[in-house]
Amino acid sequence: MTVPISHETMVWIAKTFGLLYLIALSIIVLGYAYWPSKRKEFEEAPVTILNKEDRPWQ
């Protein structure tokens, strides 16, 4: 199993890319969770499951 990239390059990519990806993903997730227009959706969602009616909407 040979891969055309050298081992040093692979390790370098692994060490830097991972960190950048972690930071980028954190920003995206926090942005998503606190996006102002999402507020209503996130406030309603946890309450809907407490709905007492136990049948499909159709």
């Binding site: 997730v29 969770a33 996130f42 406030e43 946890p46 499951i49 407490l50």
Partner: peptide, 23 residues
């Protein structure tokens, strides 16, 4: 939440935790 009859404390936190764990 259903058994306790109370909505989850922080829905946003559950989303953030989700991506944290998945990643």
């Amino acid at each position: 939440p259903v058994r306790a009859g109370r909505p989850i404390f922080s829905y946003r936190m559950s989303i953030i935790s989700f991506w944290g764990i998945t990643f």
